[in-house]
Amino acid sequence: MFTRRYAISLFLAILLPTTLFAQEKRQVIVCSTTQVADFARQVVGDRMEVKCILAAGQDPHLYEKKPGDAQLVSTADLCLENGWHLEGNDWMNKLATQTGRPIVTCVEGCQPLQVPGIEQAMHDPHVWFSCTNAAIYVRNIRDAVIKLDPEHADEYRSRAGLYLDQLRTLHSWIVREINNIPVEQRVLVTSHDAFNYFCHAYGMQSATPVGWSTGDEVGAGITPQRRQETIDSIRDHKVKAIFVETSVNPTMVREIAREAGVKIGGELYSDSMGGPDTAGETYIGMMRENVITIVQALK
């Protein structure tokens, strides 16, 4: 009995440090937004640890760096950002630069839509709302992690391939669902210009009282003219409903709804996904719930 207990104890003594060491050696990816973090998890599985600076419901345009953010980024083997100034004042890029960590901009390779700026047109950063563009994010992340960990390249390619198949299925499903809305009713009115890529990809028109950013960057801020244009558009198109966003204060949209005489059709995930245990806690779940909300309100 003593010999058996001794053998078990010796085995555990050898195994436990080995297990802890393996856990400690997992490479770390730090992401700026919840969407980017979800894409990264789909590619790396449990092979790497994925952390995200933004929490569910937080607005990347308005986010202000916290004292612990630099410490978190300094632990990263790789940083991932959306890019095109979605992260207000480029806070993620600055954190990576300050801590000397490598960073990949996930929108690279996407075809940008332009939005008005103060001096010149700017790239609209809400690129992930097209499933085709989301696939580009995934490929960029796949290539970056293969470069970081070439030993497990086949594993990353395999996960990415399955997820890309899921995105193609999601794209086809969205097309079918949007076709349930009469063409003249396919007008999407939201808090800010987060849905231009969605509308462009799926045959809708976008109308919003503010620019692409909810903060103070180029293109942000409501004007009386833009507000009236939005109300006129709602009335001209006989829009049945308009929508609030999970990461944007809903007060303005509710006021416009009352003035235009339309209902609030529901809440859409925009610059951030949903929290744990919600239907929108993944990219696919977020897109699915948005489409169901839009179709049910407008058809």
Rank of each mutant, 00 (worst) to 15 (best):
I234E: 08
L12G: 14
A207E: 14
T282I: 12
I242D: 03
D165L: 09
T169E: 15
A201H: 06
C110A: 04
A22Y: 10
I53D: 01
V30M: 00
D38P: 05
D59I: 11
A201Y: 04
V104E: 04
H61A: 10
R47I: 01
R235D: 10
R5I: 11
R4C: 11
S74Y: 07
A153Q: 12
I181P: 13
P250F: 03
G211V: 02
Q23M: 07
T105P: 09
Q185A: 10
S213N: 10
C31L: 04
E259W: 07
A121Q: 15
A121K: 13
M287D: 04
W212M: 14
G265H: 13
C131G: 08
I264R: 03
D193I: 05
E87Q: 00
P250T: 01
K65N: 10
D216N: 12
A37M: 06
G109I: 01
G285Y: 02
L162T: 13
T18P: 01
P102F: 00
H192S: 05
P125A: 02
Q120S: 15
R168M: 14
I242E: 10
M286N: 07
G68H: 10
T132Y: 05
K65D: 07
A160F: 13
N196C: 12
L162F: 07
K147S: 15
V189W: 14
Q185V: 09
Q35W: 12
I141R: 14
M287K: 08
I231E: 14
Q120M: 11
I264W: 00
Y283L: 11
Q35H: 15
R139V: 10
P150E: 01
N180M: 01
A76Y: 09
T75H: 14
A7M: 03
P209E: 09
D46R: 11
V295W: 03
I284C: 02
L188C: 05
M1K: 06
P67A: 06
K299P: 13
L72F: 07
R101S: 05
E184A: 08
I174M: 06
R26T: 05
R142Q: 13
F21L: 14
N89I: 08
M204H: 06
K240V: 07
A56H: 06
L16W: 07
G57M: 04
L148G: 00
D77R: 06
M204D: 13
M287A: 11
H152S: 09
Q120G: 10
